[in-house]
Amino acid sequence: MGDFIDTALGFPAVVFTVLLAVVVCYWILVLAGGLDPDGDGWLDGALDRIGLGGTPATVVLSIVVAVAWFASLVGSVLLGDHALLETLVLIVSIALGALVANQLRRPLRRFFPTAPEASRHDFVGRECVIRTGRVAIDFGQAEVHAADGSSAIVQVRQTGADTFAAGTRAVIYDYDSAGEFFWVVPADLSDRTKDR
């Protein structure tokens, strides 16, 4: 146990031992509800510039520190006490930590969505398929696909006398937030308007 402590508190591992203590304290505060784990804007921007973005900076840096700490311990034990080799272990440990963090951030990215929350207004301008036998000023439903490929059945209405049957293509041109429905026109009418 004494050899482990000596190695952890010796150069270069001591650099990462201190940083690892900071990381552990940070995550304890996050778990206790005292800090926000989403990271800081400038730190996320800095990691984006070096190719480690897409996941909160705090997660990426925690991975870098943990891997670098372990690599520096192993390197110190294997290569011994020589100033040049210790400096090499320090550099390789940081590089290895960044490499592992880069590989892990990709699968972790799905747990930290960065896209803005979807809105019903995102459907405006999209084509839909009528799913009811008719669409009137007070009745109708259609299926519309979102940008991510998911589909939704939405309430639709029309102001004209256009004929809509099940399976008819239409274009959503507005959203009525009070009534929570979409205004539609026939897709071929929208195509004719574009051709003018």
Rank of each mutant, 00 (worst) to 15 (best):
Y175W: 11
R109V: 08
G133N: 11
L79Y: 09
Q158P: 05
S151V: 04
C128W: 01
V129P: 01
G80I: 10
G167R: 01
D162Q: 08
L88N: 05
L99I: 12
G53I: 02
A152Q: 04
V89C: 07
L31Q: 07
R131V: 12
F112L: 08
L73Y: 02
D3F: 13
S151D: 12
I172T: 00
V92E: 06
S93Y: 01
P56A: 03
L43Q: 14
V64H: 01
V124I: 03
P37S: 06
S119C: 10
D191F: 13
F164K: 00
G125E: 03
R126E: 08
R169Q: 12
A161G: 10
A136G: 14
R157A: 02
S119T: 14
W42C: 15
L85T: 08
I153C: 07
T87V: 15
T7A: 13
G97H: 00
Y175F: 15
P186S: 14
A83R: 13
R109E: 13
M1H: 11
Q155N: 14
A161K: 15
T132P: 03
H145L: 11
H82S: 15
D36R: 08
G33D: 08
L19H: 02
V59K: 05
D148C: 05
G167A: 09
V185M: 09
V15C: 07
R49H: 12
V22L: 08
W183H: 07
V185C: 04
V74M: 09
I5T: 08
R110V: 01
L104Q: 06
P107I: 11
R196H: 12
G41S: 08
K194L: 14
I137M: 13
A142E: 01
D174T: 11
V92I: 14
A187H: 07
F4L: 06
T163Q: 13
L189T: 11
G51K: 02
D36K: 07
L61T: 02
A66R: 04
A165S: 15
V185I: 12
A98D: 03
D36G: 07
T7W: 03
Y26P: 06
I28P: 08
G80T: 05
T168F: 01
A170K: 01
G54S: 06
A166V: 13
A178H: 15
V64Y: 01
A98K: 06
L79Q: 03
Q141S: 13
D191A: 14
T17D: 11
A165G: 10
S62M: 04
I28K: 06
T7P: 04
V77W: 12
A178S: 15
D40C: 09
A95I: 14
D138H: 11
V67I: 10
R192W: 10
F16D: 06
V92D: 04
F4P: 04
Q103S: 15
T114M: 11
P107C: 09
A32S: 14
A170T: 08
V77S: 12
F16V: 02
L85G: 12
H145K: 15
I130M: 09
Y175C: 09
F181K: 13
G34C: 15
R169F: 04
A98E: 13
F70Y: 09
